[in-house]
């Protein structure tokens, strides 16, 4: 199995993600440069966190026009699994591959802290085999993670079962105090209609080794690898 990690100018979680896929999960992995326009031969693509193009204009707004995003779009259209983490999620939103947009955090502060997210769906590549209701602990690190979608669109998204992760308490309860950034309906991650493209704000790659404080994030990578190996 071969995973591609996209590197934009300003990506800063690319090496962490590469490390986890290669050394923690033991899979083949390579970096894709933002100017690459070929993703053939890959089984999955990950857009890592960071500040692509300095987050100028809007988070992800410039990155979405890079050549690699055209190729990622075609890869996704053919059903290839794509995971966007934090800034990668924002880029997928700007590219129209995932719904919604990110506003500034409710408190206008950059937040870097562990959060609890509840898995809502197990029918995506990164949550396959993780029972809905499972609470995972992973860190967030973002200034713009306040998920927004107009109410009627959010109703439809929920109706289609496309909210994949929600911020909750460690017991899985929805409450205001557990929603760090003011996201609409505590949405922390969503998927596309075909369910092969998933984005989330928390950083699973930063919670994949015990030495770094937790291994819950590793479950997402392992789920994706397992799903691909048994596809």
């Amino acid at each position: 199995m071969k995973v591609g990690v996209v590197v934009f100018p300003g990506s800063n979680c690319d090496h962490d993600t590469y490390h986890v896929v290669k050394h923690v999960c033991g899979q083949e992995v390579l970096f894709l440069w933002h100017k690459d326009s070929d993703v053939s031969g890959l089984d999955a693509v990950i857009l890592p966190g960071g500040f692509a193009y300095g987050d100028y204009l809007r988070t992800g707004a410039i990155a979405r026009f890079s050549p690699v995003m055209q190729a990622v779009g075609e890869f996704a259209k053919k059903g290839g699994p794509v995971l966007g983490i934090c800034n990668g999620f924002q880029i997928l939103q700007e590219a129209g591959l995932l719904p919604g947009a990110m506003l500034r955090n409710r408190a206008t502060k950059f937040l870097s802290q562990p959060v609890h997210v509840r898995v809502e769906r197990d029918d995506t590549p990164v949550t396959a085999g993780i029972a809905p209701g499972t609470v995972l602990t992973m860190p967030i690190a973002h200034g713009e993670g306040n998920f927004y979608l107009p109410d009627e669109d959010l109703d439809r998204l929920e109706g289609e079962g496309r909210v994949v992760f929600r911020y909750t308490s460690k017991d899985g309860a929805l409450d205001e105090a557990s929603n760090p950034n003011g996201s609409a309906r505590a949405v922390a991650g969503v998927c596309n209609e075909a369910r092969n493209v998933v984005g989330l704000m928390p950083h699973p790659e930063r919670a994949s080794e015990g030495e770094l404080g937790g291994v819950d994030g590793r479950r997402l990578f392992e789920a994706m690898i397992h799903a691909l190996q048994h596809a």
Binding site: L103, N105, R106, T108, Y148, P150, G182
Partner: peptide, 8 residues
Amino acid sequence: KKSVFDPQ
């Protein structure tokens, strides 16, 4: 848009 909260 008017319907969107503006934290800044």
